[in-house]
Design a protein around this nucleic acid. Sequence first.
DNA 1: TGAATTGTTGAACAACTGTTCAACTGTTCA
DNA 2: TGAACAGTTGAACAGTTGTTCAACAATTCA
Lengths: 101, 101
Amino acid sequence: MEKQTAEEYLELAELFKLFGDGTRIRILSALRSGEKCVCDIADELDMNKSAISHQLKSLKMANMVKSRRDGQNIYYSLSDAHVQSIINIGLEHIREGKEER
Amino acid sequence: MEKQTAEEYLELAELFKLFGDGTRIRILSALRSGEKCVCDIADELDMNKSAISHQLKSLKMANMVKSRRDGQNIYYSLSDAHVQSIINIGLEHIREGKEER
DNA sequence: TGAATTGTTGAACAACTGTTCAACTGTTCA
DNA sequence: TGAACAGTTGAACAGTTGTTCAACAATTCA
């Protein structure tokens, strides 16, 4: 385990902050089954496009999703496997927590 | 990959929210080298005991840390390996992001 | 006992954050 | 061209959150 700098801790917190919101984590989970346009995600989460777009912007700035335009639609997808890994371990933690009770 | 419920997403978000704060992630990182009392952590992070105690309470409620009293001191430690795993993968994500630039 | 130390608690304040709304850009197609 | 659709943006508002402060509880030890 390497030594972490104070700067790296702050970056870590910024990364996890993005996972720590119900809307954003549902967006990320929706994208686990493949790329989707803003419209699709908005329908799936029953929210307006503006709210989704704002959150996608945050996720994109953190390199958590990527996008490509195809005509009128802009398709978003997960940008790397770490996003899936973090979600999976989080789920493990929650499920083990329940077993212990 | 199992199907997740809406309830489980909210729990996930609550879990990650705790990682998404500079103070809390520094506390968790401080505990990676072994158990420490509130006083030690407060010194290490240069913050007062009250602020640390408030955050430790949140972390404990989420089963992320556990505690034991020894005389006047209450020693906190990480409660399971998932906490370490999540931090490690987060660091990987950040470091790979930098390589790509 | 009582002073000193460690830690917890709840209220209050300031700072931050997510959603909404309205206005806007970009693309398609008739 | 211009109407229709998809998406983005910035301002504003309400709700949430982290820290501080003062008061309190628990333990030790002289």
